[in-house]
Amino acid sequence: MNIWRDIKGTIQPFWITLRNMFRPTVTIQYPEQRAEISPRYRGRLILTRDPDGQERCVACHLCSAACPVDCISMQATEGEDGRRYAAWFRINFSRCIFCGLCTEACPTLAIQVTGDFELANRNPLETVWEKEELLVDHCGQEPDYNFYRHAGIGVVAGRGENPGEDKPVDVRDLMP
């Protein structure tokens, strides 16, 4: 009969909650204990450098366009050799939702996520990070990728003519 099912359905959860009371808790006592963060965790953003030690970011605004909450802003400029870079680059971390869409949009793999999540701050203005704070001295998760090696700068000098630059790939050639 239906009523027996109802009564059973009312009693059963009591047993489950009682049993749960005597099982170990799963809480991590945060400041003392720390959670193990997965390598693919999406935390604070960084701007990485290429293997040559130069800034990867070419100030193409793609990350800023991809960002759903519009928290990235920058000013593009060009160096002597025609290499584009950001004059200033700003991420407002009180707006960022750590979705990682900017890293997917970035053609140069300059902007990357890290495992850092401790961004809490008493002064909201201090959660706006400038380029100096965002820029790091390593290549992040892609140690070999060098955008300009593939693409060339090719504005002032011809393609593949800059010092230390490979020849451009001939797309009609069948050889690799």
């Binding site: 749960n20 808790t25 809480t27």
Partner: peptide, 10 residues
């Protein structure tokens, strides 16, 4: 406390 334990937290 008790509610916490029932939800596996301290």
């Amino acid at each position: 406390k008790i509610l916490g334990r029932m939800q596996l937290r301290p």
